[in-house]
């Protein structure tokens, strides 16, 4: 314990802590992998259930008939896909006002409840529907997906989908561990700062290709070793300054010490 306390202020301690922290976050991430969803069928019952759920949980911000208030936008015409994305990724309900609703692993509602709320919102005005499994999991062309991703997505989400900064504290989130369905829904609904990429912009095959590309990138091995978060040269620079230099100085120090 004393040895630990003594090394508390060691320069490597910060790096080690950072590393452990990152590892922990990574581990937590993988623990809470999202669950697969079932296709939604809107029935009158569902709409009624959804309405009840909506009025109990969402109406404070979005208005009693989803017309929107000062603290939340209107949901008329956003479609079931928007509900499935926002609630299904834990972004809604928003726990506290913030520049942006963060993705939360702990989803508050069951898939049935989400579908019911989606059915209610879809019943208000036509909007993008939740894509079916076949569309989402259609075989895509990975190379084409990569090209589409670099032109349409990587400027915000980074070349490897690690996320990036937007203005005034907003950000494009990382795309690791996101269900294919949710990626698809994000493209067709354009949540928060994200623009809309509906089928008239990038067709269904293009979207499937983008998703295939992302999944390929996510599952392929880190051929060169630890990827340092895929953040580009900043993390490489930090690494060589902290670990590289420490190794070199440590070795040089040992070299200059008189032997016992």
């Amino acid at each position: 314990m004393n040895a630990l306390a003594a090394r508390r202020r060691h320069p490597a301690a910060i790096a080690l802590l950072l590393f452990l922290g990152l590892a922990l976050v990574g581990a937590t991430y993988s623990l809470f992998a999202p669950k697969p969803a079932q296709a939604a069928v809107a029935t009158a019952d569902k709409v009624a259930d959804g309405k009840a759920l909506f009025q109990a949980n969402c109406a404070t911000c979005h208005g009693i008939s989803a017309e929107g208030t000062k603290s939340g936008p209107t949901l008329i015409g956003v479609g079931a896909a928007a509900v499935d994305f926002q609630v299904g990724t834990g972004r809604m309900p928003l726990s506290a006002p913030n520049v942006q609703a963060p993705r939360i692993e702990q989803v508050k509602y069951s898939q049935e409840q989400i579908e019911a709320m989606g059915a209610f919102v879809a019943s208000l005005a036509p909007g993008p529907a939740v894509p079916d499994k076949a569309t989402v999991e259609a075989e895509g062309d990975v190379a084409l997906g990569g090209e589409l991703f670099r032109v349409n997505c990587s400027m915000c989400h980074n070349f490897a989908g690690s996320g990036g900064a937007l203005t005034r504290g907003k950000y494009a989130p990382a795309l690791y561990g996101v269900e294919a369905k949710h990626i698809y829904e994000a493209m067709i609904t354009g949540p928060q700062s994200m623009p809309v990429f509906d089928d008239k912009n990038i067709d269904a095959k293009g979207k499937a290709s983008i998703i295939s590309y992302l999944k390929t990138v996510e599952t392929q091995p880190n051929v060169g070793g630890m990827n340092l978060g895929n953040m580009g040269p900043v993390s490489e620079g930090l690494f060589i300054w902290i670990f590289g230099l420490a190794l070199m100085i440590g070795t040089a120090y040992w070299l200059g010490q008189k032997a016992a």
Binding site: R150, S154, A165, G232, P233, L238, W241
Partner: peptide
């Protein structure tokens, strides 16, 4: 790409 930086 987001995070366009040169080497350190």
């Amino acid at each position: 790409t987001a995070g366009s930086q040169p080497d350190w």
